[in-house]
Design a protein around this nucleic acid. Structure first.
Length: 501
RNA sequence: GGCGCGUUCGUCUAGCGGCCUAGGACAUCGCCCUCUCAAGGCGGAGAUCACGGGUUCAAAUCCCGUACGCGCCA
C-alpha cells in the first residue's frame, strides 16, 4: 500500500535537492528495447555520469493491454547488456531500489489518484462523459468545417445535477485537464532553445482514462516530480506533449525539470527506424556479434559530436566529454556499415583472452569444439585484425577444427593448376623433415624448396594454403602452419594431392 | 488539417559573421606494404552549405519567406 506517508518522498522537500542531477529512462514495456530507445537511455546515462548524478529507470506500464512482463525482462536484459547501469529502478540483485520506489507505474496508481483529486478539488480538472462516438462525431464535424479536430470542452461546465444524471445512466467518465485558454506555454529546451506553443490551440487533454488509469502525459509529470528528476532527456516525439505537461506542473505548483529533446533516428530511406530496415532490437545486435562498448560508442555519435569530430572514445572520455551542447537538432540516419567498422576497432584493441571469451558463444554455436586442435587463443589471434563482428570468428578459424572443405576458387584457381599435385607431394615429404615445426624455420625451408626447383614463391605458397585450409584467403601462412601442427599439415597436403589427378 | 521541429559530401558530423578555395570519420577509388584476405600508411574523388529574398564592407553562420522531410494532436 502506497500512501504519501510511507512514500519517503514526503520527507524530502521536492525541489530542494535540484542541484543533484537526476535523469531517468522510462520505457513502456510493449516490446523489445530498440535502437532509438537505447540511444535515449545512453544519453541520459552519459549525462548523469558526466555530472556525477543519479540515473533512474522507470517502467511505464500503464498500458494494460500492451504491457507485458516479457517486455520488461527483454528491456532490462538489453540495458544490462549495454551496461548502462541504473542507480535506482527495478530491483536487481545488486542495485538499491532507491528511496523513490516503486519504479513501476502500475504500483503508483494511488499517487496519481491523489493528484487527480487535488486538481478536481481546485477546479483544474473535470469529468468528461463523452463517449468514443461523441468524440468521433466531433472530429468529423471539425474536419468538415476545416477546423483542427480538437475536443471542444463541452463537459467543462456541466451542472452537478447533469453529472449525476449521466452517472446514473451508467456513463463512464474520463478526467480532463483544463488548459488555459490564453497565453503561450514556452518549453525551454536545452537543445532547441525556447519553443513556444499557443495555449488556445491546445486542448483539454485526458489525464485519467475511462478505465481509471492515468495517461502518459499525467503520470510522467507526477513521477518526474516525485522522483526529483532534474533533466528530462527524451526523444523528439515528445516535444509536442511538453506544453501540456508544463501546464500540469504549473497547476500543481511545481517547478518543471529541464528538458532536452533528442532528434530521432532514421532508417536509410529517411523514415523513422523500424523493423523493415533490418535489426532494430538491441538484443539482435548482441546476437550479431557487436560489443556493447562499440554499440555505445556508435550510438553516442548519432546526434552528438565533439568539435574535433573525435570518433573513438573510451568510456572515461565519453563521461568526460559528453554534453547536451554537442547534441544535434536534426535527425540522424543509422549506418550499420559504420557500426561494423567501429566494432572492428574495438575488437582489434581487445586483448586476445578477452576476445576469445566474448567469441566463445559464437564459436560453440557454430559447432566448433576446440579439443583435438590448437588452442582457441592461438587460432583466434591469427586473424585478430580481420573480425568486424564476433559472428565472423568461427568461419575464420573453423578449418583448424573441421575437415577441409575446398572452395571453388581454391580448387579451380589454385589446386587444379598443372604441377600442383607434384608440388604438394614433394612438399609433404619435405616438411616432414622440418624440426622444430615453427613459422620461421618453415618459411626458410619452403623458400629453399622454391629456389631448388626454380619456382616462384607464389607457385608454392598458394597451393600450400589451399591444400591445408581449403581456401585462397586466410591468415599469414607459416604462423598458421605452425599452429596447425605437423601432423595435420602433412596429412592435409597428402589428401589434397590424392584428390588431384 | 492545425501546431511544432528539422534541412552542410552517399552516411555521421565540424562550423556559432571574416581563419571556409567548407575540416574530420565511415563508405568509395588509386598507390604503397605483402604469401592471400585483412589491418596499416599515403593520396584522390565527393557538399553550388535545400531554395529564394534580405541585413552586413563580409553569411554555411543573423532575419523573413518557400519547398521538402519528420513528429505531435485526431
Amino acid at each position: 500500500m502506497l500512501t504519501p506517508e510511507n512514500n519517503s518522498l514526503s520527507a524530502a522537500a521536492p525541489g530542494a535537492l535540484r542541484q543533484v542531477i537526476r535523469t531517468r529512462f522510462a520505457p513502456s514495456p510493449t516490446g523489445f528495447l530498440h535502437i532509438g530507445g537505447a540511444r535515449t537511455a545512453l544519453f541520459n546515462w552519459l549525462f548523469v555520469r558526466h555530472h556525477k548524478g543519479r540515473f533512474i529507470l522507470r517502467i511505464e506500464d500503464t498500458d494494460e493491454v500492451r504491457s507485458t512482463g516479457d517486455s520488461v525482462n527483454a528491456i532490462l536484459d538489453s540495458i544490462r547488456w549495454l551496461d548502462l547501469s541504473w542507480d535506482e529502478g527495478p530491483l536487481d540483485d545488486k542495485r538499491d531500489s532507491g528511496s523513490y520506489a516503486p519504479y513501476y507505474q502500475m504500483q503508483r496508481l494511488e499517487l496519481y489518484q491523489k493528484y487527480m483529486a487535488q486538481l478536481v478539488k481546485e477546479g483544474l480538472a473535470y469529468s468528461c462523459y463523452c463517449s468514443k462516438e461523441d468524440l468521433d462525431a466531433m472530429r468529423r464535424l471539425a474536419q468538415l468545417e476545416k477546423r483542427p479536430p480538437r475536443y471542444d470542452g463541452r463537459c467543462r461546465e456541466l451542472t452537478q445535477s447533469r453529472r449525476k444524471e449521466l452517472e446514473a445512466a451508467g456513463k463512464k467518465a474520463s478526467l480532463r485537464f483544463k488548459m488555459p485558454e490564453e497565453g503561450t506555454t514556452v518549453v525551454p529546451d536545452l537543445i532547441r532553445g525556447n519553443v513556444s506553443f499557443e495555449n488556445k490551440l491546445q486542448q483539454d487533454f485526458v489525464i485519467r482514462k475511462t478505465t481509471g488509469g492515468p495517461t502518459y502525459n499525467f503520470a510522467c509529470v507526477i513521477d518526474d516530480h516525485l522522483m526529483e528528476i532534474s533533466h528530462v532527456i527524451r526523444g523528439d516525439e515528445h516535444l509536442s506533449n511538453t506544453p501540456s505537461q508544463i501546464q500540469i506542473y504549473k497547476a500543481l505548483g511545481w517547478e518543471p525539470p529541464k528538458f532536452a529533446h533528442l532528434s530521432m533516428i532514421l532508417g536509410p530511406d529517411g523514415a523513422k527506424l523500424s523493423k523493415r530496415h533490418g535489426a532494430t532490437s538491441v538484443l539482435e545486435y548482441k546476437q550479431q556479434g557487436f560489443l556493447p562498448a562499440a554499440l555505445r560508442n556508435y550510438l553516442a555519435l548519432l546526434g552528438w559530436s565533439t568539435t574535433d569530430s573525435q570518433q573513438l572514445f573510451t568510456e572515461a572520455e565519453l563521461f568526460e566529454r559528453f554534453d547536451l551542447a554537442g547534441c544535434q537538432k536534426s535527425p540522424a540516419t543509422f549506418d550499420p556499415v559504420k557500426l561494423s567498422w567501429m566494432n572492428g576497432e574495438y575488437i582489434r584493441k581487445m586483448p586476445i583472452a578477452r576476445l576469445v571469451k566474448e567469441a566463445e558463444p559464437f564459436i560453440k554455436a557454430a559447432g566448433i569444439a576446440s579439443n583435438g586442435g590448437p588452442s582457441l587463443e592461438k587460432a583466434v589471434s591469427l586473424e585478430h585484425e580481420k573480425y568486424k563482428q564476433l559472428t565472423e570468428v568461427p568461419r575464420l578459424i573453423d578449418f583448424f577444427y573441421k575437415p577441409v572443405e575446398f572452395t571453388p576458387q581454391a580448387m579451380d584457381q589454385v589446386l587444379r593448376q598443372s604441377g600442383v599435385k607434384r608440388i604438394l607431394v614433394e612438399l609433404a615429404e619435405d616438411l616432414n623433415q622440418v624440426s622444430p615445426f615453427t613459422h620461421d624455420i618453415l618459411e626458410e625451408r619452403v623458400r629453399k624448396f622454391c629456389a631448388n626447383r626454380g619456382l616462384k614463391t607464389g607457385q608454392v605458397f598458394h597451393p600450400l594454403r589451399a591444400a591445408s585450409t581449403g581456401r585462397t584467403e586466410g591468415p599469414t601462412l607459416f604462423l598458421m602452419l605452425e599452429i596447425m601442427g605437423r601432423d595435420m599439415v602433412i596429412s592435409r597436403l597428402k589428401s589434397a594431392a590424392a584428390l588431384l589427378n
